[in-house]
């Protein structure tokens, strides 16, 4: 199977270090989410992997070979980098036909991927008439053209409508289930949590985490329980007696950390404390991510005034 191996990869852009000694491996059979704030170096890393930019130091290989060494690379690796890559005056079908010809991919694959991405009915229209979501689908069609075992997508959900987002999620899951190596960059946490098995997190060009999604969330954010009551004094007393770590928010909602709904419900019932709301709060990738990147975010807002 084909892995992507990045070793000590470094790229300077005119004095600014865009990618800083990155080392990781992207394995087949799962979706790897590539997360990081804008400017963290995700797109630069993808360009380095594809041999489009020259690294300042380090190597990136696919299946053990540098990308430019792959013969007919579209048959091995498919990539979406820019949704604007197709010329506005060309039809989607012609755009894909030219791309297919360069790697001797049969023309019927063009029709297959147009069908697969839902563009078949508009395939003979000029790309200029497409919405951003349709251009995004065309970029994904181009990535799938050579039926590649490695798929790299930079922000594929950009501009997609809700139906498109469900579609891309299903597509990514399927590609991984077929044993392909799938690397998807995004800055959308909810989306990434919905499709990724594994995470690579970048901040200022450095690797901050290389970990399965579940483990990442559980290691960073503890689950908690939300409680609302008409009798705050009784609740505070009850929680204190049982040693719960709780705090009251401004809107009167209590947050009880390290607790379970089952336990709290029983306690409040036995103590006769009225319950307006009792809900478990699952930790989200967003919370875990913010916890990790709080110190790392490049564009942290500066305090205003003196």
């Amino acid at each position: 199977m084909t892995s992507i191996d990045v070793r000590d990869l470094t790229k300077d852009h005119g004095g600014r270090r865009a990618v800083d000694h990155l080392t990781f491996r992207v394995r087949p059979g799962r979706v790897t989410g590539f997360l990081g704030p804008n400017g963290a170096g995700k797109s630069t890393t993808l360009r380095l992997v594809l041999g489009l930019d020259r690294p300042t130091a380090g190597t990136a290989t696919i299946g053990g070979h540098p990308y430019p060494r792959l013969g007919e690379p579209l048959r091995r690796v498919g990539a979406l980098l820019d949704a604007g890559a197709a010329h506005g005056s060309r039809t989607a079908r012609d755009h894909l036909l030219a791309l297919a010809a360069s790697n001797r991919i049969p023309a019927r694959r063009v029709d297959t991927v147009l069908e697969e991405t839902g563009l078949a009915p508009v395939a003979r229209r000029r790309v200029r008439t497409y919405s951003l979501g349709m251009r995004q689908r065309l970029g994904i069609a181009a990535a799938l053209l050579g039926d590649p075992e490695v798929v790299l997508l930079d922000e594929p959900a950009n501009g997609l409508d809700p139906e498109g987002i469900v579609w891309i999620r299903t597509l990514l899951r399927r590609l991984a289930a077929e044993g392909r190596t799938v690397l998807v960059s995004s800055h959308l946490m909810g989306e990434t949590a919905a499709f990724a098995d594994h995470l690579l997190i970048l901040g200022r060009g450095r690797l901050l985490a290389d970990t399965p999604v579940r483990e990442f969330i559980h290691a960073r954010v503890r689950p908690h329980v939300r409680v609302r009551t008409t009798d705050p004094a009784a609740l505070a007393d009850l929680l204190a007696r049982h040693g719960h770590d709780a705090s009251r928010d401004e809107d009167g909602t209590w947050t009880v950390r390290h607790a379970r709904v089952d336990d709290l419900g029983r306690l409040m019932s036995e103590a006769g404390v009225p319950v307006l709301e009792l809900s478990a709060h699952e930790a989200t990738l967003e919370e875990a991510y913010l916890d990790l990147t709080a110190a790392e975010a490049e564009f942290t807002a500066q305090p205003q005034g003196a």
Partner: peptide, 18 residues
């Protein structure tokens, strides 16, 4: 010049890296 807009060249060179 049509290759130097909208990242077209990146797609082109990912298909023909030489």
């Amino acid at each position: 010049a049509s290759e130097f807009r909208g990242g077209a060249l990146r797609l082109t060179l990912s298909a023909v890296p030489d």
